[in-house]
Computed example of a mutant assay.
Amino acid sequence: MPTGVAIRDVREQLFDAAERVLLRDGPSALTSRAVTAEAGCAKGVLHRHFDDFDAFLAEFVLDRVDRIAPQAAALCESAGTGTVAGNLADALTAVFESVAVAIVPLVIFRDELRARLREAWPAGVPVLTEAAIMIASYLSAEQALGRVAEDADVGTLAPTLIGAGHLLYADRGTTPPQAGAVHKMVTAVIAGAVREPLP
């Protein structure tokens, strides 16, 4: 690792390496040595920028949570276009084909990581909770346009979609569910809430 590299560059390099290890080998394989080996740098580099490995993991998880913000903005901007089910299926696919599914067992696997995350994230599982907020915001936007029923409980529909999506994607190895399966699940969950587009 050359000297003089900006801290942000080192952090991103380590976070990207952690994501690759997590997705490829699972949470039990995510060690400081595995991350630095994957990043192609000395083990001491990680410890120069983070207090310990759990501090690194907490920052990694929160960094991946922050990446949902652009997806959330794009999803809300899609309100009134396409179909509600299609927009939701695309959004869920983007969330669950990212590192989201792998982060859930990582958080469950490490007690100290959960404790660190509670300092910044008081409730829920990071990434999945943020994704549920994104879905609820989108459904509220569609509600305002009349494409989702005014009395629909978006606060319940959103986590229901996240939970059902997680079940579709969890523990599938390298084969994600087909797009049709995701769309079918979304259509079933929102069937009672969606209205035909207004003319």
Rank of each mutant, 00 (worst) to 15 (best):
D52S: 05
A85S: 14
E112L: 12
L167D: 15
L23C: 13
P70W: 09
F56K: 01
V107I: 13
E142I: 07
E119C: 11
A55I: 06
V45A: 10
F60E: 00
F50A: 00
A42V: 08
V148F: 02
N87G: 10
D111V: 10
H166T: 10
H49I: 00
M134P: 14
A29K: 07
I7A: 13
P126A: 10
V35F: 00
L30K: 01
F56R: 01
N87L: 07
S137I: 04
G86K: 01
L167Q: 14
T31C: 02
V99A: 06
D54K: 00
R116L: 04
P2R: 11
A170W: 08
W121Y: 11
V35H: 00
R110N: 09
K43W: 06
V5H: 08
A94R: 15
V194C: 02
H47V: 03
A144P: 11
V127N: 05
R48K: 12
S28K: 12
I190D: 06
S98M: 03
G124Y: 01
D90R: 10
P105S: 07
F56M: 03
V194L: 04
V99S: 04
L128W: 02
D25K: 09
V127A: 04
D151L: 10
G86D: 08
A179G: 12
A74G: 14
G165H: 02
L62D: 11
R8Y: 06
L167W: 07
A42M: 08
V182N: 02
T160I: 09
G163A: 13
A149F: 04
Q178N: 12
R11M: 01
L168T: 10
R116H: 11
A72V: 03
R116Y: 08
P197L: 02
L117T: 01
G146R: 08
N87W: 04
L57I: 00
P105D: 05
L167A: 15
A58R: 03
P199K: 03
A37G: 09
A58V: 02
D66V: 08
H183W: 14
A94V: 14
R24Q: 11
V107S: 03
G44Y: 02
